[in-house]
Design a protein around this nucleic acid. Sequence first.
DNA 1: GCTGGCGATGTTACCGGTAATATCTCGAAG
DNA 2: CTTCGAGATATTACCGGTAACATCGCCAGC
Lengths: 361, 361
Amino acid sequence: MTEQAIPATEQGRPDAGSGADRKARHGAAAAGKPATIYDVAHAAGVSHQTVSRYLKGFEGIRPETRAKVERALAELDYRPNLTARSLTTGRSRRIGALTHDIDKYGPSKILGAASAAARDAGYVLDVVTLDTTDTASIREALAIIAEHDVEGILALSSTDEMTHAFEGIDFRVPALIAAEPDEPSRVQSQLATVGMPALVAHLAQLGHRRLIFLAGPHHWSAARNRTRALQVAAETQGLEVAAILEGDWSARSGHELIRDLPEVDATAIVSANDQMALGAVLALSERGLDVPGDVSVTGIDDLPDAAFYTPPLTTLRMDLSGRGRAAFAELLSRIDGSEAHEPEPVQSELIVRSSTGPAPR
Amino acid sequence: MTEQAIPATEQGRPDAGSGADRKARHGAAAAGKPATIYDVAHAAGVSHQTVSRYLKGFEGIRPETRAKVERALAELDYRPNLTARSLTTGRSRRIGALTHDIDKYGPSKILGAASAAARDAGYVLDVVTLDTTDTASIREALAIIAEHDVEGILALSSTDEMTHAFEGIDFRVPALIAAEPDEPSRVQSQLATVGMPALVAHLAQLGHRRLIFLAGPHHWSAARNRTRALQVAAETQGLEVAAILEGDWSARSGHELIRDLPEVDATAIVSANDQMALGAVLALSERGLDVPGDVSVTGIDDLPDAAFYTPPLTTLRMDLSGRGRAAFAELLSRIDGSEAHEPEPVQSELIVRSSTGPAPR
DNA sequence: GCTGGCGATGTTACCGGTAATATCTCGAAG
DNA sequence: CTTCGAGATATTACCGGTAACATCGCCAGC
């Protein structure tokens, strides 16, 4: 299948003889280099455009032509060069993903789900991590992403800095922050209407009347969302919020907040995530308080590990994977202009385990 | 391919004035479209090649020309188009990253570190996740990555399937699996020579003589590595390994393995990671056994949360970030052919907390 | 039998860069 | 005063695709 096998069929050139080696490159695809559509076209004895048409699924190709192309394609193990394609079409099939705390469960879970959804849609995620949370470093990361010619931008952590960095930038491509789907809420938050009330009701039913809330960092919209939901639910159901303490999502911060409390004047601690709850449980036991004997503790998220904490944690299960998928789907619909089917509201479900029990006398 | 067809008019004409609109596109960068070097060249009144030279840092440009280019560059807020550049240079500044379990702490931590290292080197990571561990799906993911024209490929989980999928494929670019740096070991594993012996010595010193090992899944090279290290250390120090039970890294598996044990005939449980240790602790307490009063438990990794388990977990801290950075550095050196400076051996350090204590009588 | 129309395919232009080559300008040497 | 050479800059080709346009062959209609 080498070059000279195609005799004088060379298209429009009169001097068929000597011209044969002029484009030796397109003969038997040179050493190791991936085959191009020109190689395929040459091997099939058609024009590159015919190959391109075939690849696009164009119907009007005669069966015998089609067969030749298919054979050449298979023989040369052709793989399209996305770079070249993207240069003309502007479609790079790449999405920029922006995140810090990728080693934290939430963002990485969302990332994983978004990435899987992306792969199914033929996209890959260009991940750029942030060292710090300041707006400047976010802007820099955005610049890197922009150079890489992505079709959309997805931010995986919804902090104020992120929101701020996104404002006033002309991305030229769709960009969105994968926030909890309810914030800021157009529709009523499912967490606020169902999940959190259920959690609070659970505590109320156990006789608790006073609780301490461990909040997430205030610059995260998800944290504010959860705090607000708790406040509303507690008020509605007549529970008193003795204190709202702000942590940073980490177990360490949950531990420190409870450890440094002058006194634990509540029978329940509600934490904005599971990890702070984990730290709180440890701090309580260090203070000689039993969970759930003296104090009940709850989390939010339902990490896979939360079922195996000692004691297993009562928590609100949040569908983070769904959030990642939904975020990607939303972005995708904005990219190709298709109608975004209303995202199914993310469910939060109360999971009762042994970290909650009857309030002590 | 004959090119004499060129209208001949364009070339040498000196009529600078009227030609201005010939390429109106390159005038005031059309609506929203990013500026190209042609736009910049036009604005600066030089050729696009001069702009390209400037961008490459070429020295021999006259100061006044340089100034014009700089001004135009700033004015148009020029950003290079990586896609176009990569088409000619073949350098896409992209690395394909392959992973499953991205929501697990280990892989995501490694990914985060690799991504940060990549960003510092001007690269981004194209992340493709895997649903399953089978070779076929890995191959498919590799095909996706290959189309996206990456300069190197990094696999973040070192399972046998991954190794197998990598064999016999001509990637045309460097590819490596981010294994624990010691496996298969050219140099002696630091875990085997320092970390694990220290852990075992710690237990021996507390009077333990019999232990149960919770191993990771055997198809992970890291799991085999850890198992072997434990066996050697135990034998060397005269401790008996009562059983080796294989889990899947998850807390759930650790819990099940210990829960289903007919009897716990050992005074210590050594787990191949922290999460299985977490599950083991819960199972022990459900069996009425106190940690560390009746049984001591240790992990490996030192997850951020491990210090806040109840009780806080004695573990071997592994430098996963270092591993991610090292993997990327190694890949990068293979890409640009530079000499790979010998990777610093990843340290493992014994962290003693309260999940270990004196062996009971 | 000429011509219009259409289906199938080929040719050229273009995307935005970089590499290779050509041209232009000037100062120094002959 | 030429000529030469080197530095500075401009022109052209090319990367591998897609889009737009051109061409070719064949059949139907007048």
